[in-house]
Amino acid sequence: MEEQVQEEMPPAQHTGGHHPVQEGEVFNTRYQALRELGCGAFATVWLCQDMRRKKQVAVKVLKSREGFADTAQDEVTLLRCVNCMKKKDRAGENIISLLDDFRMIGENGFHMCLVFEVLGPSLRCLMGNYTTQGLPLPFVKKSLQQVLTGLYFLHKRCRIIHADIKPENILLYGHDKSLQRLLMDTLDCGQRTHVKLKGAGGDPGNQLEESDLMSIEVKIADLGSACWTYKPFSKEIQTQPYRALEVLLGLDYGTPADIWSTACLAFEMATGECLFDPQPGKYFSRDDDHVARIIELLGRIPPQIAFSWNKSTKFFSRPGALLRFSRLCPRSLPGTLADRHGWTPRAAAAFAAFLLPALHYAPERRASAAQSLRHAWITAP
């Protein structure tokens, strides 16, 4: 729809928009566009043939709007650090690899372009086939191990906060060429189709066997919102349902914010529903509802924490009670898993024991990536 609107605009109003890529177009005298893989608010991503190295790559073409080049250059700097540290630590294999970057000029201005290894569709695409019950737990555990290993690498080796962990930014891939090709065939699943899995409630034409699921690996992608641990770029980070409490309340944040998001990701993978899905109301904002839902699930925020944060007066009255909410409906995490999602009490308690340390209100007391990786729930078969 956005592209149609742009086509109707006078040429002068194109400045700052997407580059209108044509199939067959060659970028930087090297990368030939084959087909579009995705289109977002800030960039389009194209499957391209690297004519020099005779292999396929993914080229991210950012909008030409002023400021995008600086943001892209920050991302390139972070990704170069990742590439450098990968040579010293295999944990870096769980982060997408930047292969090249360049600038090009088009009818809408200058565009920064980033060249990545080709991976499969996102975890969001895969989850679309398990909306009622979540993904199989063995796959959830395996994928979380890889995400947490990647976060350990970013946090400890690179001193980077990802700042936007969510299903859309976890990409699937297969070491086996036939599996990777099958995943590549479904890369546009977010736009027109879905990854089809036999046994997942799909039709007989499904292509991907459910037994292939445990052969799928994942990598963390999109460092477009990432920053250094010692130099945050923005106060507003993370996509709303995965946003850590300290970010909601305006406190300085660090690597624990990624762990909060990972706990939200884990719950969604395992159940098919967001842990927190805040909505605005007539008398309260989406942020208000988000804080209320967090308190309902995790309990009262200690006053010494609530009032140490910059936006405390926006959310709390002096005794520590929420403004704009006279009544909350407390619920426990194990109870939610058992009552709403049909988990056995034992399974619910074990999963909650993994999630709760990653959702601690005090960031400095929140479980780290390394501690989460050692937890009994994730290491159990």
Rank of each mutant, 00 (worst) to 15 (best):
Q4C: 03
E7V: 05
H14C: 04
T15G: 03
G17W: 09
Q22L: 12
E23K: 14
E25Y: 13
V26K: 04
R30C: 15
Y31L: 10
Y31V: 14
R35A: 11
G40H: 01
T44F: 04
W46C: 09
L47V: 05
L47T: 05
K63W: 06
A69L: 14
T71W: 04
Q73P: 01
Q73N: 11
V76F: 02
C81S: 10
K87W: 06
E93N: 12
S97A: 14
L114W: 05
E117L: 00
L119E: 06
S122H: 03
R124C: 05
Y130P: 00
L135K: 02
P136L: 07
S143M: 11
Q145P: 00
Q145G: 12
Q145M: 08
V147A: 01
L148D: 01
K156T: 15
I160V: 15
H162E: 04
K166Q: 08
L171S: 01
D176S: 14
M184C: 11
G190I: 08
L197M: 14
P204H: 07
N206W: 11
E210D: 10
S211R: 13
D212I: 02
D222P: 00
G224A: 04
E236Y: 12
I237T: 00
P241T: 12
G254E: 03
P256K: 02
P256H: 02
W260F: 08
S261R: 01
L265S: 00
F267E: 03
A270C: 06
E273W: 07
L275C: 04
D287N: 12
V291D: 01
I294K: 04
I294L: 13
L297Q: 03
R300Y: 11
S308Q: 15
N310S: 13
F316L: 06
F316N: 03
L322G: 10
R324Y: 14
R324T: 11
R331E: 13
R331W: 03
L333G: 10
P334W: 07
P334H: 03
L337V: 07
G342Y: 08
R346M: 06
A349N: 09
E364H: 11
R365H: 15
A367V: 02
A376M: 03
